[in-house]
Simulated scan of single mutants.
Amino acid sequence: MANQQEIDWPVSRSRIYALLGQLTTRQPNPEDMERLIRAESIALIDALFGDPDIGAIFRQAALLHSTGELSPDTVELDFQALMRVPGPSYTHPYESCYRDRRGNNGNTKWGGICGPYVQQTERYYESEGLSPMYDTVDFADHIGAELSFMAHLCEQQGKALDDGTEEMALQIRQKQEAFAKEHLFQWAEDFGSELSAKAMTPFYQGVGRMLQAFIQLERTVGIQEN
């Protein structure tokens, strides 16, 4: 029988995946933005990642918000430029674009959208009875869709452990590992770096850095059994 710490771990991971999925699929409303940059939330970020630079970026966002220099409208514009509108700040938020890209040092030729990873990720979602979030994203290999799917799997693992169905929890953990290795781990850190570099606001600079740090944490300890 799983102890409470074993149950809480995938639940905590689910919440972080869900937050990152939300922030990369739609612009945060003012309440969500303020919740992330408040002192208590930044202290949790410091404790989780052990990287003072991430907290420092969010503290800068909080300071600018308190002086009126960082408004929800500014963050919304940043989100649109990063995630929706092709232009100099656009991040190409699809696995196909990242895994099929060529070149570097400013000469990157991005892969095309709707590559083979769309159908591959769709099959994973459908195995859990989920749709590919086409009400909010255009293709199933969108970063927000993949992060949200991992949130779902972590939540289901926590429920299975809480119910005492440890064999089911193991199967769900194995699906997390397979999906992450086949898809998310192949590009999410690069995407986080691109997001942080292109963001106009410290809010999305912090989101990009947090995504990078969280994926690094997941690679080492997150998915493994406690």
Results as ranks from 00 to 15, higher is better:
F214V: 00
A43M: 09
G192S: 05
G103F: 10
Q216E: 03
V11H: 12
E225V: 13
Y17C: 00
G55I: 05
V207E: 05
P88L: 01
L161Q: 03
K181S: 14
Y94E: 02
I37K: 02
Y125C: 11
Q174R: 07
W187E: 00
E69W: 11
L36W: 04
R219Q: 07
R59W: 09
Y17I: 00
M133P: 10
M1E: 12
R123Y: 14
K175L: 09
S41C: 08
Y90N: 04
Q120P: 10
Q22F: 15
T136R: 12
M133E: 11
G192Q: 03
P116N: 06
W110A: 05
M150I: 02
E182M: 13
M210A: 04
I172M: 04
N3K: 13
G111F: 01
H152S: 06
R173I: 01
I16W: 10
T91E: 03
D163G: 11
V207N: 04
A160L: 03
Y134E: 12
G103H: 07
G206S: 02
V118N: 07
D138K: 13
T24V: 05
R84W: 09
S148D: 06
G222T: 01
N107F: 11
L64K: 08
G115S: 04
A81C: 15
G103L: 08
D163H: 12
E194K: 02
I54F: 05
H142A: 03
S127V: 07
Q5W: 13
I223W: 14
D51H: 05
E218R: 05
S14T: 06
S127A: 13
Q60G: 07
I7G: 06
Q176D: 05
H65Y: 11
Y134V: 13
D73Q: 14
F149D: 00
E146L: 02
D135N: 10
S127W: 09
Q80N: 12
Q186H: 10
Y134H: 13
H142Q: 04
S71F: 12
A56H: 04
E194T: 06
V207G: 03
R101A: 08
G192P: 06
T165M: 10
Y90K: 02
L63G: 14
I113M: 09
G87Q: 08
A178C: 08
S66Y: 15
T24N: 08
V11G: 10
Q186V: 07
H92C: 12
L184Q: 00
G164E: 06
R219W: 03
R101T: 07
A145C: 07
L44F: 15
G158K: 02
G112Y: 09
A61V: 04
P93I: 01
L77A: 11
G50K: 00
S71V: 09
Y94G: 03
L147V: 02
V137E: 01
T165V: 13
E218I: 01
D8L: 14
A213T: 00
D46C: 07
L20H: 02
A145P: 03
W110T: 05
Q224G: 10
Y98K: 05
G158C: 03
Q176M: 04
N29H: 13
A145N: 03
F179E: 06
A197R: 15
T91V: 06
A62W: 08
